[in-house]
Nucleic acid binder design. Structure first.
Lengths: 220, 220
DNA sequence: TTATGCGTTAATGTATACACAAGTGCATAC
DNA sequence: GTATGCACTTGTGTATACATTAACGCATAA
């Protein structure tokens, strides 16, 4: 059952530790140190670090160790700009694809879950469903490379969310946007799907960047 | 002077061999084999392969060797869709940035070079200058992550160009588009810069995909 | 006190060794 | 002739060893 290589184990363990904040942004870690912590030799740790580096989660700097990449407000602006364009394209493509209601079930469920979470004031559940909505949207856009790029960017957003989720205003407008996008896709209106999602992401971008700048998270 | 690690050497050597067609798309190569060819041990070759895998140039499949990723017409459609969106955003951002004429010198030079190459019927020189134009455009958009994603995608386009460059019609419309984009950026018109470039890339996409499909390059 | 240079330390880059597992071919049975 | 299983081969995943070289501290000089 454990058909999982040490490299894979290292990748997911490191990801988990990064997202959990156990390896804080900006902190350095020697290969040997991480290898010991993960109970394996340096080789798979190095390979895992190389992969995470390609995704922008860590930087390997000779003799200084593996640094957990910090994400500044400026970084977040870059990331959201990319997300905005690529997800909007995915929304347009999804609309063009003439999906049936059944195909869009996951999208509908995610929206309903967000409503529910919001009513219960459960921000964590809301964030999880929001993630799910965006992931499904991109999947429906049917572009494997785009999905990969977006997922890398979304990982970065997830990291910042730990600090922003409870500072931001309640995401009320958000759900209305999602519903409009959903309906546009359902009736095959690519233009509206695209533009609505674009505006949605841009608004989120501006709000988050302002939030991060205000609270001086310039390099955490 | 040779402050270059074996991993770096391996990465650039492999890239070169891939772009030159010396390692043909779809071909498999054992780690040992490549290591011997490059005059180093498996370790740096493996690390180089991991990096190239992250960029989609190769795939590592256990026991089957390192495969040079083939690029099909469908892949090219995906790639161009991403390029279209991201480069257009860069064009818009460049326009918003209020660059001086001096800042746009590289752009202007690239356009002039393309004109010259086209007049001499030198398609290779044209392709080189075209690359330069697009690279500079993205740089002016000032989004480091976007630049990286675009450069990965452009690498894939470069690979296909070896087969398409001499089959496609002469890129005459292309230069007019570039000029319009340049002027829009110079006068700070983000909308025109964006939309013109978007249409430019989309046209290129449709032309190339049709070309590749027609000539049945479905997996070479 | 601050700057400069040297020696030490230790982390990395790379080579090598080895166990394991997947693919291959042959032999055997039907 | 086809199918099944077994032994063998061989590539990879991982551990380990080692040389190199960059960072750091200390001493010395201005």
């Amino acid at each position: 059952m454990g058909a999982m290589s040490n490299v894979e184990r290292a990748v997911s363990a490191l990801r988990q530790m990064i997202f959990a904040g156990e390896l804080p942004p900006g902190s350095d870690h020697l290969e040997t140190e991480l290898a010991e912590k993960l109970g394996m030799s340096r080789t798979p740790v190095r390979e895992a670090a190389l992969m995470l580096q390609a995704q922008g989660l860590v930087e390997m700097r000779p003799r200084r160790g593996i640094r957990i990449t910090p994400v500044s407000a400026a970084d977040m602006a870059e990331i959201y700009d990319i997300l905005t364009e690529l997800e909007s394209l995915a929304a347009a493509r999804a609309a063009e694809a003439q999906y049936s209601k059944a195909d869009l079930a996951n999208l509908a469920t995610a929206i309903r879950d967000m409503d529910g979470a919001l009513a219960r004031d459960d921000l964590r559940a809301w964030a999880e469903a929001d993630d799910r909505f965006h992931r499904e949207l991109v999947r429906l856009g049917r572009n494997a490379r785009l999905s990969m790029v977006v997922s890398v960017m979304r990982d970065q957003v997830r990291r910042a969310r730990a600090t922003t989720l409870f500072m931001r205003p309640k995401p009320k407008q958000s759900n209305e946007d999602h519903r409009v996008v959903y309906q546009a896709i359902a009736r095959g209106d690519a233009q509206v799907a695209h533009d609505t999602h674009h505006a949605h992401r841009q608004a989120a971008r501006d709000m988050l960047v302002a939030l991060l700048e205000k609270h001086q998270f310039h390099g955490l």
